[in-house]
Design a protein around this nucleic acid. Structure first.
Lengths: 269, 269
DNA sequence: CAGAGATCTTCCGCCCAGCGGAAGCCCTGG
DNA sequence: CCAGGGCTTCCGCTGGGCGGAAGATCTCTG
């Protein structure tokens, strides 16, 4: 008897795959939808979903469909690279928003994607594609380019070697071009992403550094391509990024000697 | 041989208990700490933590400790009663903050607790105890009283029958007093919580209603006990709560006939 | 109104995946 | 140097997870 080629996934993996069935496009699912999306037999899905629901990780809505529960939201809120970062950055983001009244974004790097932690957008700001909790390929966003530029060699090479999806005619077309752009970003200390996701939007992004001075996040301001001057916002973006870095305890963002010493980063709460 | 009284927890339950080991006071844990907190043998904890980490639910920091990973943050961001509600409410909360420049809070009810989804606080606003992602007993907070007052009979009775922890001399002392307060809240349509958690803070809270007109959340403004007039903010709080309810599609918050029809609630993204 | 076709739930016996003790590795500190 | 704490790997036993089958509901359709 030939054994099956792939070993069956562990119980834990199956449980986690149930969570993965949910996504931005499908925040509510029926049991059979979960079964189909995960590939798990209906009975198995039923049992796992039951356990998750009993724990509070999933909830049922009025129509009997399942949705991510408060319990999981609370756990997620404990992620230092999620809400933790956001809490520290928020005052600076609000100041930046007040100064520019354009879209203001905070993102971290995960694999080859930028994951957006926060977005402040005014009523009259240009409408952008991003969503809190959403992800976009790093090479195509201003924040992503900044984070890639300062990432480890391996991460950069991985991003460069991957096929690049073309969102618009201005999207960086290939690895060689990306390599040049990253070098530019490193030299300048900031990134400009002009119409790479949507032609109507340009973003200016700057790096946010952590306690060990590595780049842990990035922030950006997004302005309309027409009648918007991205460069005009550069000083404000850099100042805000530096402020957040200092609040996180980045050595390079320390105030000069003689000025008041700031407290270092501590977990919220 | 007598069997052990309690059946051993399922694999899923063990996996989830690992997540529960993390909390506001302990966002980073070593493997042995996780083992101790969950009561799981070190080896078992090791395996479960390994699977979670491989999936991205946990991450290791520089010192080898574990923390909640971005993956879980993303999943949590899909919770309709978490980020979903927050996204809808945010513009109204910002308006409310602009109007008052005091602490503005958004919370939902979970069991007997109010869970805080968002808090906007200015530099000069009174310092409060709450934290995004944190929870406090419902009976002791303004938002909690509002949500309890409109909750199902069972939920109310459960809250009333529970022993009430005394935070300050002004904390509601017992079930009978709580019952009276809830009746008052229902009659008035809002709640005032005066110094029940900390003597220095007073909050005015109003209910937020969902598509079926049930109360799904509450918002409040917190002002200092000294030289702060909570009642002065009541109209603004009620207006904001009504605005959020309308955005969620609550029938009772509909604009009167003849005015423009609003779009109903849809999931963010 | 019967019947087909969904989806959800309960039941139960087989078997292998998960369990966890033991032992070894790598630190740090005395 | 050894002691102690934390982490990782190994491996054989066993009981909990698996999922097919059947039944319960509900909806649509002819």
């Amino acid at each position: 008897m030939p054994r099956p080629a792939t070993p069956p996934p562990s119980v834990s993996a199956r449980l986690l795959s149930v969570l993965e069935a949910f996504g931005p496009g499908s925040p509510r699912l029926t049991l059979s939808e979960i079964s189909r999306r995960t590939g798990l037999p209906l009975t198995t899905a039923h049992r796992l979903v039951g356990e998750l629901a009993a724990w509070g990780g999933l909830e049922r809505d009025g129509e009997g469909r399942y949705q991510i529960g408060l319990r999981l939201w609370e756990i997620g809120a404990l992620a230092p690279r999620g809400l933790g970062l956001r809490e520290t950055a928020m005052p600076f983001l609000e100041d930046l928003y007040e100064a520019t009244h354009e879209n203001v974004q905070l993102a971290v790097l995960d694999g080859n994607d930028s994951v957006f932690l926060e977005r402040l957008s005014g009523r009259e700001a240009v409408h952008v594609f991003t969503r809190v909790g959403g992800r976009l390929p790093a090479y195509a966003t201003g924040v992503g380019l900044v984070m890639l530029a300062y990432a480890s060699h391996e991460v950069q090479e991985a991003a460069i070697s991957l096929p690049l999806k073309r969102f618009t005619e201005k999207t960086i077309p290939n690895g060689a071009a990306l390599r040049r752009v990253l070098a530019d970003v490193r030299r300048q200390g900031f990134a400009i992403s002009d119409g790479q996701i949507e032609l109507i939007a340009v973003s200016v992004a700057a790096p946010v550094r952590g306690p060990d001075d590595s780049v842990v996040a990035a922030i950006s301001v997004v302005v309309p391509s027409e009648n918007g001057d991205a460069y005009a916002h550069l000083p404000a973006v850099r100042a805000a990024a530096r402020g957040i870095s200092r609040a996180l305890g980045a050595p390079s963002a320390r105030r000069p000697p003689g000025s008041v010493r700031r407290e270092t980063f501590s977990a919220p709460g």
